[in-house]
Design a protein around this nucleic acid. Structure first.
Lengths: 335, 335
DNA sequence: CCCCTTATACTCAAACTGAGCACAAGAGGC
DNA sequence: GCCTCTTGTGCTCAGTTTGAGTATAAGGGG
């Protein structure tokens, strides 16, 4: 029996997709591989790349095959290939979404099977280097430069994106559509006094895509400079998957203690704050942040002192892993 | 190309699973079909049942096939068969989880393909009856009687489950394991002053399963009475899926305005409260609930009066669907 | 008209939040 | 050794939110 029923109903292929996140030097990073459309659907390929002209290649999320005979669960399948290939121990894995849209894989048009990808977010600690030379840690704001508000409003927003969106709104001839576009822009991009919502990463990306301000991998790009101007494009719908992952993580840290999966065994409170800020792309009030953390009781002082702070030495803390279960309900984000 | 890679790596089948929820007469209901292990994996079957001896049948979640050639997205595939088969318009669909565990489908043992189910929660309004006679609306607390705290603590908990769990804790010979069991029971079942957390539906179910206090479909049940004593069993892992759905919904209503998808076009605030209570399985403080709702601005008075309240007439409200996008961040739950 | 029920307004203390002040304690320059 | 810069840490304070009531309104049924 084939996947998805009788052959006349089409064939299906299952892949496991991973957004592997680490914080390296206060920057949020994702593990990225270079891939061609061909290697992307070849489920038995490793992450290793082939030599190919640069134009045909795209930055992609790593993926692995799902072998029902080898893998007891989807998650264990994911864990096994990620750990094997990246040399990182995965502290935390969360299923993100299953993507099965038509047209995800350009090879479908040529009669290829439908690609269904079960995607995961994995959090790893900033430790060993990756085993694969072709896999690189990239700052995730490389793909979404407008999402990083840690140093004030992103310049690109003010100078380019907002004006372009306003023009897109005005471009519409139908007043109802204009109204609709305006409202959605307000909500997602915080226009005209609406506050910026850090979780709407996917919604913002999709609005930009609709307004033709960012390119997807499939799009024909005549001007190669434009590829990177409003963030780097990715293979297939991987940029969308990444946007989903960032939005989800930003939401999750507010009510579950998942940040600690990204932390070294001991850390100072400022280090913890920097990690939260890296993920959420915003600045937090230091005193209130420590008040929050201490109140939740997720953390305990080791008694040691960290003196490489550039100022007064800070006490070291450790995550109280014992409370992981107990504190299902406790996050780490003010606001 | 077959699903999941080369044949020696096993075959895979994709199904779409739906937890279809409606509130009928203040009770949370799920749409349930009767199915045998055979019909469960026959992806091209409709919901319609076959005549079979009662013992071989189990209550199951409805599912539908995914046809890559017909369905542009997984969600549209789901929508199309649900709407066609249930006669209900679906207001809201959310992807829940993709299950691909080994042993989900007993036919695997006989060399059958691995069953991967993409499951969804769908919310429908309490309107037209279902098109299928074999599909029934069942109270979801039928499967999880310990989850309904609307009338005080569930009797079953005090009289049966908690004592049985305490015994299970003591049964362990290893003190570390005993400690672990005790802590997990505290957290999930709110033992010894730990507060009850309404979202831990799946965690509670899995603890009970581990403690051998509930049966799964595959289990051999010698005493048929026990099937229903601690909640009715379901086919395959459907009870687990349902638990996931309930937990997810209980979480979601707290920060997204999804309840309104279950409401009729106009309603009183008490009706709205009853629906929230039905989902969360707990009682809310009436005055504070209305304060919350009014503050959020999700709702507006129609100006009309509902006088069938059994007391003073209440004003009718309508959901302000305009703010659906805007209020991404607003839920409806105190606490 | 009394009583039961539900609706709705309003109060009040406790807890939480956002913002900021003030001081502590190291490093480096002079 | 002292000044200054930097980061850590304790504490205040007003504004808001929350949980838990009290009080009153307004229908229906006997």
């Amino acid at each position: 029996m084939n996947a998805g029923g009788a052959p006349e109903n089409g064939q299906v292929v299952i892949g496991l997709n991973a957004v592997i996140v680490a914080i390296i030097e206060e920057q949020p990073k994702v593990l990225i591989v270079q891939h061609t459309p061909e290697t992307l659907t070849a489920q038995h390929e490793t992450l290793t790349d082939r030599a190919l002209p640069h134009d045909d290649r795209h930055e992609a999320l790593p993926f692995g095959p799902f072998y029902p005979l080898k893998h007891r669960t989807l998650e264990s399948g994911l864990r096994s290939w990620v750990e094997e290939q990246t040399n990182h121990e995965i502290g935390y894995v969360e299923q993100l979404y299953t993507f099965g849209n038509e047209g995800r894989d350009p090879r479908e048009e040529a009669g290829g099977p439908r690609l269904v990808s079960v995607s995961y977010v994995a959090l790893v600690q900033d430790t060993a280097p990756t085993a694969i030379e072709t896999a690189i840690w990239h700052d995730w704001y490389r793909y979404f430069p407008w999402e990083d508000w840690r140093e004030d409003t992103p310049a690109l927003l003010e100078s380019d994106i907002i004006p372009a969106l306003r023009q897109w709104i005005e471009t519409s001839t139908d007043p109802a559509q204009r109204q609709d576009r305006y409202e959605r822009t307000c909500i997602t991009f915080g226009l005209d006094d609406t506050p910026w919502n850090d979780e709407l990463v996917l919604e913002r990306y999709e609005l930009l895509y609709e307004a033709n301000l960012v390119a997807e991998a499939q799009d024909h790009i005549t001007d190669p400079v434009q590829i990177d101007f409003r963030g780097t494009a990715m293979a297939l719908d991987h940029r969308r998957i990444l946007a989903t992952a960032i939005g989800r993580l930003r939401g999750k840290i507010k009510y579950r203690p998942v940040v600690f999966e990204l932390m070294p065994p001991t850390f100072t409170l400022l280090q913890l704050q920097k990690v939260v800020e890296a993920l959420s792309g915003s600045r937090l009030h230091k005193q209130n942040f420590r008040r929050l953390i201490e109140k939740k009781g997720l953390v305990e002082a080791t008694g040691k002192i960290e003196s490489q702070t550039g100022g007064r030495p800070a006490s070291q803390f450790r995550f109280r892993r014992e409370v992981l279960m107990e504190k299902q309900a406790l996050g780490v984000r003010q606001n």
